[in-house]
Computed example of a mutant assay.
Amino acid sequence: MAEWLDSISTHWFWLSLGLILGAAEMVAPGFFLMWLGLAAIIVGILDYFLPITVAYQVAMFAILSVLTVFAGKKFLADNPIETDDPKLNDRGARLTGEIVTVVEAITDGQGRVKVGDTVWAARGTDAATGARVRVTGADGAVLLVESVTP
């Protein structure tokens, strides 16, 4: 039964699979499917030039899939993606330097401050309600603050 599979042009299957996986990567990005697509395209190209049985093609695809995924992982580790805004998803870091208002007095180092229309937990030097303090950093969802001298 498998003899008929060996007689057809399976390279078109592998090339098509590679393109489909590449398109799937664009639709649902995860930086994983593109490496499987690359493995499928390599198998398709090798199948076009060399007489390879379907069993060897599948084994080659499995091996190349593992190799391309690890090569991609190494490539990303060696070439990290640079960003123009490294604090993009770090709200606490973005607030560093801002002057905010104390809405719940900071006593024993704990209190609450208002940032825009949001109230954050704060830790820092004692301050009365209504005082102005400067954000010096963040510890998770708690802003670290210090008194602003007039």
Rank of each mutant, 00 (worst) to 15 (best):
W35N: 11
M34R: 04
W120S: 02
M60D: 12
L36A: 13
S9Q: 15
R123T: 12
A122Y: 07
I63L: 15
D6L: 06
R123H: 07
W35K: 08
W120M: 07
M26N: 00
L38V: 11
A2S: 11
V119I: 11
V69W: 06
Q110H: 15
D47N: 14
D126P: 01
A28D: 08
L36Y: 06
D117R: 10
H11Y: 15
A105I: 05
G30Y: 03
L144A: 01
P29T: 03
D139V: 12
V54T: 14
Q57L: 05
I20S: 10
S7W: 09
L144W: 07
I41E: 07
T118H: 10
F13A: 06
K114T: 00
L67W: 05
K73D: 04
T107F: 01
M1K: 09
V66I: 15
D108G: 12
I52P: 02
A59P: 05
A131K: 05
S65R: 07
R134V: 11
L33H: 05
A28N: 05
F70W: 13
A121I: 09
I42A: 14
E25H: 00
Q57P: 08
G130T: 04
S16I: 10
W12T: 09
R91S: 10
H11R: 10
L144V: 01
L88E: 08
W4S: 12
A59Q: 15
I41A: 13
F49I: 01
G44H: 09
L38C: 12
V27Y: 05
G109W: 08
T10K: 07
E98M: 07
A71S: 14
G124E: 11
A122H: 00
E98Y: 06
E3A: 14
F13V: 12
V43L: 05
G22Y: 00
S147L: 13
L46H: 04
L88H: 08
I99G: 07
L36T: 03
L15Q: 13
A77Y: 10
W120G: 03
L33T: 14
S9T: 06
I81N: 02
F13Y: 14
G140I: 06
P51R: 08
P80L: 07
V58N: 07
E98C: 02
A127L: 03
V103G: 05
M26Y: 09
